[in-house]
Design a protein around this nucleic acid. Structure first.
Lengths: 259, 259
DNA sequence: TCAAATAGATCATCTATATGAGTTGATTGT
DNA sequence: ACAATCAACTCATATAGATGATCTATTTGA
């Protein structure tokens, strides 16, 4: 009997698997789990395709389709001749996927981050809703000032659940050798894979005016970002205020692999 | 001799084709050309995959990969059991891919469009640069007011090259039965397939304050959009001013087919 | 006339296999 | 020791064929 005649083929991977879901989606789920569980570390190669095919008892084409989707979601990175790697949060990656502020002329600068405050607190309505945690659940609040070309341009207000980031301290945040998403990943095994942002215009209040060195009631761009890990689980809520006098928010709605 | 041993296989599709480009990219290019040339009309089905494979002398899997990418870029739409269709600019599609303003609660309303002015003019520096046309080339300028729930929320300023849209009139724009992108497509065979947007915060001037019914110096979100057709050829430059008191700009950077 | 069953078309998924191309590391010859 | 060569491994591309799911159109039967 050939494989496609096997009525139980959907159960090859795991008992209890939902029927009528494509095999490659199951494979994808398994791959995602392995990454999510830290079985395959960021930056490292995952097993070769033929090996995954063998282990999962599916054909290599099916594995390929699963990997294709994960590559498309920036979770895996393929390199011909070398292997397929779990995406790590290096600075370049962060800048490309999660930093959308460019100079008026279109050029992108790397920001210098200065922490303004680090505090423990309780989630308010909005934060709880966006983070999917209970009202008044414990959170950390981190205020950062981002300098571009030496000027304070962005005022970040980061809120993260203490449940996900136990024992985080301001010192750890300041002392990180890399981006804060890298810190999430390396210290807490939390990989941010996507974000949703909502933007509006507002006027500078006293605090933001001071921080960003603009007049009170100057126009600022407000960005509310929810950063998510696998399966759209929210892990960070961030409110940013941006002085868009010489910088802009760039949104290219066609990052899909074209060519 | 089997196909893969044929050293001229890259020339099957068209003489003069660059070597070392994947076959499926060539097929994709041909498909794109057929659409772009109006050979296959928006909303209509393209030939079945096996037929395309036969015509192009490639396997059905190769056609499939080419179609896959075009589906991913929202240029084609697949429907199991029915066929593959050229994406048409209906209202739903426009709302999903090109309209990013949502209410504070996240819900999306369909705007009511009211034309404020239609004029002929000459492209200034910024417009010429974004549209890839000569300085002082002839353009049409269309000002629209977009009402959401009856309130004026968005003030659009659309600039398009007259070369691409000959004999366009205000009456044609107002009398269109569908969206303006549908008009571009149906009347001028220009299909907008992607857009790039840049956002900033600014204060309302006298004109925008009046149009949007806000106070002068109220904070407004300014969006500059370049809309492009196939091969990233710009066809429209649009400046929008948005009253973000009760509405927001939504940017989901992971619209890639996940699931 | 109308509804149900059927056949056909088409995409969706899966398997199997072959070849090409890039990378890495070991082998080999000097 | 060193460089060139080569083999092995990996992903990239392409082909062929089979089965499943879904929609459309036709036929059939009451």
């Amino acid at each position: 009997m050939r494989k496609w005649e096997d009525p139980t083929r959907h159960h090859k991977l795991a008992a209890g698997t939902a029927l009528n879901t494509p095999l490659y989606k199951e494979v994808k789920r398994l791959l995602t789990e392995s990454i999510s569980a830290g079985e395959w570390k960021p930056g490292c190669a995952i097993p070769a395709e033929y090996m995954l095919a063998e282990q999962s008892k599916v054909s290599i084409g099916t594995v390929r389709k699963a990997v294709d989707e994960l590559v498309n979601e920036n979770i895996l990175i393929r390199q011909q001749g070398r292997g397929t790697f779990v995406a790590a949060h290096n600075r370049a990656r962060l800048m490309f996927h999660f930093f959308h502020i460019v100079r008026n002329d279109g050029s992108k600068l790397t920001p210098e981050v200065v922490m303004r405050s680090f505090a423990s607190g309780l989630a308010d309505d909005e934060e709880a809703a966006h983070l999917g945690i209970g009202l008044r659940a414990k959170v950390f609040r981190i205020q950062n000032i981002l300098l571009l070309a030496g000027e304070p341009i962005i005022f970040d207000d980061i809120v993260i659940p203490q449940a996900l980031f136990p024992k985080l301290t301001g010192a750890k945040v300041v002392g990180r050798p890399n981006t804060i998403y890298h810190l999430y990943q390396s210290a807490y095994n939390i990989t941010v894979v996507r974000s949703a942002e909502r933007l509006r215009a507002r006027l500078a209040d006293a605090e933001s005016a001071e921080v960003l060195n603009v007049k009170k009631r100057a126009p600022l761009l407000e960005i509310r970002r929810v950063a998510m890990t696998f399966n759209d689980v929210p892990v960070e809520f961030r409110r940013s205020l941006v002085n868009t006098e010489h910088y802009e928010y760039f949104s290219d709605l066609a990052k899909t692999a074209s060519g």
